[in-house]
Amino acid sequence: MPSADTGGRSVLEGAFGLLAAVEHAQVAGLTRLAADCGLPKTTAYRLLEQLVDLGAVERFAGGYRVGPKMFSLGQRWEPHPGLRPAAREPARRLAQVTGAMVGVSALWEGQTLVVDWAPSAPDDTRDRLRDEVTWPWNTAAGKVLVAGAHPRLPLGPLPATWQREAEAIRDRGVAFDREELVAGVCCVAVPLTASGGSPVAALCVVTDPAHRLDRLADVVQRAGRTISARLRGGAL
């Protein structure tokens, strides 16, 4: 990696590299972070202290961790303008009606990225899943987005059965996860579309195997149509 002293772009690369290293390590000292990023310790220290001043990083337990500014900025990110406000109330109602967790997700670097959650009951053991922001692409939410993606996304080798499954997802407009990733957890997901008809995100309900997913899919699809209409500026 170029030295962070060699130009404006390299300074940014160094700063973002340090942010990524801090996020990966959760808490780490200067020596480790500098080594992880291939930076001189003096350069890493200067950049980290600037990031501390900006609130992007904070000092913790003799090292550094991600700061509150990054959390604040991350909470404002969304894969499509207006997605959060469009989904907030329909997702909340869906969580109330189904008694399940409801999530809004997008595809990011070949993974399922959770943008927001509408939780179910406070003591629901599935709430532990809220701590995970990224999941493999083959969640129900990821599958419904990959099936509708064009051009083909760089996901690496796909399962031999994927083409047939993707066709079924496109035909019905819904994808399922029957304990494929987490034991005791099932999911139903539908695409959320904006102008042009391409999926920009997915609405996903996380429940348990006792629920009939086919029946649940109808309720999720109705909520998805409401959110998509809001994204297109149509009637609610």
Rank of each mutant, 00 (worst) to 15 (best):
H24Q: 10
H211L: 03
A4Y: 11
R232Y: 09
E165N: 04
A194I: 01
R225I: 05
R164K: 12
D124Y: 03
L145V: 10
P79W: 04
R232D: 12
T207P: 01
A160W: 04
D53P: 04
M70Y: 14
P157R: 09
V104D: 00
M1L: 10
T43A: 11
D218K: 15
N138K: 14
V220M: 14
V182S: 01
T98F: 04
A183D: 07
C187S: 15
R230N: 07
G82M: 10
L47N: 07
V97R: 00
P209C: 05
G224K: 01
R84A: 13
A34P: 14
P151Q: 12
R9Y: 04
R178S: 04
W108G: 09
G29E: 03
Q75Y: 11
K69R: 15
H24Y: 02
V133N: 06
A210M: 02
W108M: 08
I169L: 13
H80D: 00
S72E: 15
R32K: 13
F176T: 04
P157W: 08
L192I: 00
V22D: 00
L107W: 00
G74N: 15
A121D: 03
Q163K: 10
R172M: 01
L145G: 10
P79H: 09
Q26L: 12
V114W: 11
V52G: 08
R170I: 05
V97Y: 02
G148I: 04
G67C: 14
V190L: 04
L213G: 09
V102E: 01
T112F: 03
R212A: 15
P85S: 03
A86H: 09
T98E: 00
A235Q: 10
L192A: 05
A229S: 15
I169Y: 11
F60S: 13
M70G: 13
E109S: 08
A168F: 09
E179P: 06
R164W: 10
K143H: 07
T31F: 08
S120C: 07
L51N: 11
G233A: 01
G234C: 04
P209F: 01
V206M: 03
F16T: 13
V102Q: 07
A86K: 09
E13S: 08
T134S: 13
G184I: 00
A149D: 09
E13A: 06
L145F: 09
G7T: 00
L47G: 03
V190F: 00
A21H: 12
D218R: 15
K143F: 11
E179T: 05
G55S: 14
T98V: 08
